[in-house]
Design a protein around this nucleic acid. Structure first.
Length: 572
DNA sequence: GCCGTTTTCGGCCCGACTGTTTTCAGTCG
């Protein structure tokens, strides 16, 4: 059983307890455990198999450890089954509707016998719901609205798609006099791989005028809430956008608060309370004196708490606060550390630009090296290279290297890993290349055992340097393959092979938790943009962000090494 | 249910907005 499934069960438990109006701190404990498990870098299954204690997971104590163990070993949890049996059927379905919480759900099921969203819709239309105490016409109307929103709610969208939307909105708002510091916070700033809504924030002389302009934007289809400091709207594409504006001198605490994650903020506030400090978006309040201290910068905010500055990408409520307290946070890799790109296509296979054009663009990026890795012939659609054409390309690259002294071009290939794990090109040609990337592109639906064995066979090939986009997922479009990633990490570590973070926003593969775990095992990471046009070189920033979410330092990523070091590393 | 350089018992994050209320509960992030 995967961590995401375990997390789901504990989230459901928290919801059911909330409906039963159980102790709210008990509810919070289950909720916290669910969130932590969801973001855990290591599969609990593996931890248990290795005899590792679950008590080291923050928020997991005696009771929850026992429940997890039962769930993983038997596939069922007695406590959860009983809880479900005791609760009105369909009640958790109602909680998915925006605007319905545990109290409302409880009233709807107990007083009207509602068991599904369809039941609820009918009851609202018949007027029954509006007659309940504490629910009136407007509330019933709002719930109906929530049902519609739920039904048309699009999936979370890949983070690469939200930046243009955000720039569009902020560009307009920036023209308002007296507004400053407009920026995206929330999951966008933490660089979560998908985004459910966009959180925007800023400071202004007069917050209300900015909010009025925001809800009046042509992109806004519908206004959900609007007050003097915050507003929520639905944009034309169906995406929700929230804007929060405070006065200028609270910028540091506002952006901290609005960046989240929620779990990080809860833990940070708990930590602060122990020091007698209460945190909010307006600043830090001394509990004893009631005096509030304001912060112009986020750095100042963390420093005041006695912490190292915590980068947004690692604010997921794992161990970042205790490490910041010990001043033990790593210096995360940054875009400036990157000296080259290891995954690039040209019009020799399915790329759109010539070899020369791609090299020139890479030079403009300030890179000192670049690997050209066109597809191998097995990929019919990709106009892949056979042995002869690959040899010709190697000659071209050799000439290019003589002509352009500013940048070194590695001759490489992205060789297809065939269904049985063999490679699509003979060893003797692979041996002549500077760098060999291997990747799965077909028969992605093989079962776990088959596809894992297939991948490990490729890792064991003495010619393979890097495994590209290891899970083959396409965000929002194609689920990752059934591959056993822990086994892949172990094999990569054993054979000193490099794993790629594919930087294309539709892939981001490896993902953050995978990177964390692979790095922990000592696996070298390489960033590859998989560029098919030179403008896609800019995807590098996405890959860097994923590496940061995996707590990578410069030393963990091959792209930060000097040309000589890369040569040496590939030669080993 | 979890947790502890103030505690193994007694705490547990903080504020905005809405609607149904005569002072606040519910929901959300």
């Amino acid at each position: 059983m995967k961590n995401t499934q375990i997390a789901r069960v504990f989230q459901d438990i928290a919801d059911l307890l909330e409906i039963k109006a159980e102790d709210k701190f008990k509810i919070r404990a289950y909720d916290r455990a669910a969130r932590t498990i969801e973001h855990l870098p290591k599969e609990i299954e593996i931890m248990l198999a290795e005899g590792e204690s679950l008590r080291d997971i923050p928020g997991v104590g005696d009771a929850i450890e026992k429940k997890i163990t039962e769930l993983v070993s038997t596939g069922k949890l007695e406590y959860f089954e009983k809880l479900k049996a005791d609760s009105p059927s369909g009640i958790t379905e109602l909680l998915d509707i925006p605007g319905i919480g545990p109290k409302t759900a409880q009233v709807l099921t107990s007083q009207l016998g509602i068991q599904s969203i369809d039941d609820l819709e009918a009851a609202i239309k018949s007027g029954e719901v509006a007659e309940l105490s504490h629910i009136g016409e407007k509330k019933a109307e709002a719930i109906l609205h929530g049902i519609e929103a739920l039904r048309r709610k699009d999936k979370r969208i890949p983070i690469g798609d939200v930046f243009p939307i955000i720039e569009d909105i902020l560009g307009t708002l920036r023209t308002i006099p007296g507004v400053k510091n407009l920026t995206a916070a929330g999951s966008v700033r933490r660089f979560s791989e998908t985004v459910g809504d966009i959180d925007l924030m800023g400071t202004a002389d007069n917050p209300e005028t900015v909010l009025k302009a925001f809800v009046a934007l042509p992109q806004v289809k519908e206004i959900l809430v609007q007050g003097p400091t915050k507003a929520s709207v639905i944009l034309a594409g169906g995406l929700q956008a929230d804007l929060r504006i405070v006065e200028h001198d609270s910028y540091g605490s506002l952006i901290q608060y609005f960046t989240g994650s929620k779990q990080h903020n809860i833990l940070l506030r708990q930590y602060a309370l122990k020091k007698g400090l209460s945190l909010s978006e307006y600043g830090i309040t001394d509990v004893n004196t009631g005096i509030i201290e304001k912060f112009a910068t986020e750095e100042g905010f963390y420093v005041r708490l006695g912490l190292q500055y915590i980068q947004p990408e690692i604010r997921e409520g794992q161990r970042e606060i205790e490490m910041a307290e010990r001043k033990a946070l790593p210096r995360l890799i940054s875009r400036e550390d990157i000296r080259g790109d290891f995954h690039v296509h040209t019009d020799w296979s399915d790329g759109n630009e010539s070899l020369k054009a791609m090299v020139l663009s890479a030079q403009k990026m300030g890179y000192t090296y670049l690997a050209i890795t066109d597809h191998s012939a097995g990929l019919g659609i990709a106009h892949g290279l056979n042995e002869d054409r690959l040899k010709k390309q190697m000659q071209e690259i050799r000439k290019l290297n003589e002509q352009s002294p500013g940048i070194h071009v590695f001759s490489g290939v992205e060789v297809d890993i065939k269904a049985d794990g063999s490679l699509d090109l003979p060893d003797k040609i692979l041996a002549q290349l500077d760098i060999v990337i291997a990747a799965i592109h077909s028969a992605i639906n093989q079962d776990t055992e088959t596809i894992t064995r297939r991948m490990i066979r490729a890792i064991e090939s003495p010619h393979v340097d890097i495994i590209a986009h290891p899970t083959c997922r396409l965000i929002g479009e194609r689920e990752p393959s059934a591959i056993d990633m822990e086994a892949v990490f172990q094999a990569a570590a054993r054979h000193h092979k490099i794993l790629e973070i594919n930087c294309a926003p539709s892939r981001l593969d490896l993902k953050d938790t995978h990177v964390f775990r692979a790095r922990e095992l000592g696996v070298m990471i390489a960033l590859g943009t998989d560029s098919h046009r030179s403008e896609q070189f800019n995807y590098m920033r996405f890959g860097v962000n994923v590496a940061r979410r995996g707590w990578c330092q410069a030393k963990d990523v091959l792209n930060t090494r000097s040309l000589n070091d890369v040569f040496a590393y590939l030669k080993r």
